[in-house]
Each structure stands twice: as C-alpha cells, then as structure tokens.
Simulated assay, not measured.
Amino acid sequence: MTDSKASTTVKVTRGRTGKRERLVTAAVQVFHEQGVEKTTLGDIARAADVPLGNVYYYFKTKDQLVEAAVDAHCAQLHTLTDRLDELPDPATRLKTLVAGWVDQRDVAARFGCPFGTLATELDKRDDGLDRAAAQVMRALIDWAKSQFTQLGRPDAHDLAIELVAAYQGMSVLTNTLRDPDLMATQGRRLQNWIDTLR
C-alpha cells in the first residue's frame, strides 16, 4: 500500500537522516520482510547500521518500534496521496495509485503488501497496535472514497472498499503464488474498472 523498496538485506544509508529515522526506516523494511515476531532489535540495528545499544536510547521495546513503523506507513500514505492529489482528475489519481501498486509487484510476490502484512500480523495481538494499523487502512479508504465522490458516485464508500479489498486480495495471491504477473493483470483490470465508473 505504501512505497517500498525490494531488498532482502536492508542497509539504510547514512547521510542526513538521524539514527532514529534510520531505525524507523529499517524497522518498516525488516518487519515487511521478516514479520514482527521473527524480527529482533538486533536485526533492525544491523539494517539501520546503528549499534544495538543505541536502539534502546530511542526505543525501549520492540513494540515502540512497531508503533513508529505504523506511524511511518501513515506518513508515507499521506505523502503519496498528497502527490496523487496534484493530478488533474480523480480517475487519473485512482489509476495512478493502482499503477504504483503494480510497480511494486516483485516486492509483493516476495513479501506481500508492505502494510497489509503488518496489519494482519498486528491483528493477532491485543495490545492496541491493531487499532493504530486500522487507522492507516481507513485513511486509504477515506482518500479513495473522496476520489469516487468526485467522480459523482453515490456509492463512493462501497467502491473505495472494493478497490482496497481488490488490492489486498491481489497482493495476497501474488505473494502466495509468487507470481508478479498476477498483480500486473489484476492491476489492468482495476484500471479498466475505474474507467467504467466515470
């Protein structure tokens, strides 16, 4: 659902970003690739190129890093939708969103949706992080609903749910079957579907 870069060995580059930002970026990537439960703070420290002891300065627990990763997904989604909102019309915005999902098909084939997999894993816990993840998914649905509303659709909410559900479904199938072409095919179908709704 959000921007992601394909890599199995993450190395977050040093530069102007501080250690905390590098840790959060690494956490997003490593949680996506390994899952929350399999990931250790050491894995994230290595990926961020930060000494393990420094992790505890910024995050006392892995759950705090998970929360920061959810916040990072939310920020990425807002950045993405802000860029999409610069496009001239709602159908183009929606189709560009789908094209972005399709562009990530190799990542989806390997690891699934960057946010959907995290949200699914967090749903199995009872610590409240599942509700934080739900807010990110709702933000995407709300944005899609506003696009369908601008297209004059009285069923905008239902269409937004259908779009997001279609994406999550094609991500799961693409990942399960390890078939990036499946996402490309389904993405074209979604774009054609959007064209029929004008």
Rank of each mutant, 00 (worst) to 15 (best):
T2L: 01
T2V: 08
D3S: 14
A6F: 15
V10R: 05
V10H: 02
K11R: 15
T13V: 08
R14C: 05
L23A: 07
A27Y: 00
Q29K: 10
G35E: 05
T40H: 05
D43S: 10
A45K: 01
A47C: 05
D49W: 00
G53S: 09
Y56D: 08
Y56M: 07
Y57V: 04
K62S: 03
Q64R: 11
A69Q: 00
H73L: 02
H73N: 08
H78V: 00
T81K: 08
D85E: 13
E86Y: 01
E86L: 14
D89E: 15
P90S: 13
P90G: 11
P90W: 02
A91C: 06
T96N: 10
L97K: 08
L97Y: 15
G100S: 08
W101D: 04
V102N: 06
D103Y: 09
D106I: 03
R110V: 03
R110I: 01
R110M: 14
F115W: 11
T117F: 00
L118S: 11
A119D: 06
T120L: 15
R125N: 04
R131S: 14
A132L: 14
A134Y: 06
A134Q: 08
R138I: 01
L140C: 08
D142A: 15
A144N: 06
K145P: 01
D155Y: 12
A156L: 07
D158S: 15
L159S: 09
L159K: 12
L159Y: 14
L163H: 06
L163S: 09
A166L: 04
Q168V: 00
M170I: 02
S171P: 01
T176Y: 12
D179C: 11
P180G: 11
P180V: 08
P180E: 09
D181F: 03
Q186Y: 12
Q191R: 15
I194G: 04
T196R: 13
L197E: 05
